[in-house]
């Protein structure tokens, strides 16, 4: 369970990127955070996986106060998460395989297991035939799929994705969402920042509406 209590974030005075957000996401939820550009979706996701710290407020993940975890132990939290960054954050001088394998290498899995899992992840995003290419030779959409494969390769308990279908055609976007749904059905909590209304309407189970850093509405489909 992810609980956010009165989260405030200020990058520069006097503007608040996030203003007093409190929300609860249950284990196994498939939820969307939506809103126009600049509404604070990315900031909120970055706070959840502690890439940045909130100016005020508390975050609990499975009862553990994330902000109290010392820097040198934060890796334990991140290993339970899969993250799709809006800007992909790929290593351009390393192959697609190496990019996807990195969370597994860090965990010290055997080479054979790494190869198997990387191949499966790439096959899920329909990119297994480009395993040995370098990301700079791939299209924008393909780079995005590499980022998705990296996020799901470690079978995370929590999957955070920031505009994961932003550069994909509707058909592929639908496929990617189906993969996320599949991971969700296996027990993972999925949180997606997106403004794609069609996808949200189709897949959204719990939806948080953001505007100017505030939650202006919440919808739960049963």
């Amino acid at each position: 369970m992810i609980e956010l209590y009165h989260i405030w974030k200020q990058y520069q005075k006097p503007h608040w990127a996030i203003s007093d957000i409190s929300l609860e996401i249950n284990t196994g939820d498939f939820c969307f955070i939506t809103g126009p550009s600049g509404s604070g979706k990315t900031t909120l996701l970055r706070i959840i996986f502690r890439e940045i710290l909130p100016t005020e407020g508390q975050i609990l993940i499975d009862g553990v106060n994330v902000l109290k975890i010392p820097d040198h132990k934060i890796y334990k939290l991140r290993r339970t998460m899969g993250i799709v960054f809006q800007d992909f954050r790929l290593m351009f001088h390393q192959s697609v395989f190496a990019n996807v394998a990195i969370p597994l290498q860090i965990s010290g899995l055997p080479d054979k297991e790494i190869r198997r899992r990387v191949f499966n992840s790439l096959r899920q995003v329909n990119l297994h035939h480009k395993m040995w290419e370098y990301p700079d030779r791939l299209s924008y959409g393909e780079q995005q799929r590499v980022a998705i494969a990296r996020a799901i390769v470690n079978r995370p308990r929590i999957l955070l994705a920031d505009e994961p279908t932003g550069n994909l055609d509707p058909e592929l976007a639908f496929e990617i969402m189906s993969i996320f749904k599949e991971i969700n059905e296996q027990g993972a909590t999925v949180i997606i920042g997106s403004h794609d209304r069609e996808l949200i309407r189709h897949f959204g189970h719990k939806i948080f509406f953001l505007q100017k850093g505030k939650i202006i509405g919440q919808e739960v489909k049963t």
Binding site: Y75, R78, I83, R89, L90, I102, I106
Partner: peptide, 14 residues
């Protein structure tokens, strides 16, 4: 730097 940042965000220790 980019690579180091990615490694840290996907759970690498220092």
């Amino acid at each position: 730097k980019n690579e180091i940042e990615i490694q840290r965000l996907v759970g690498a220790t220092n």
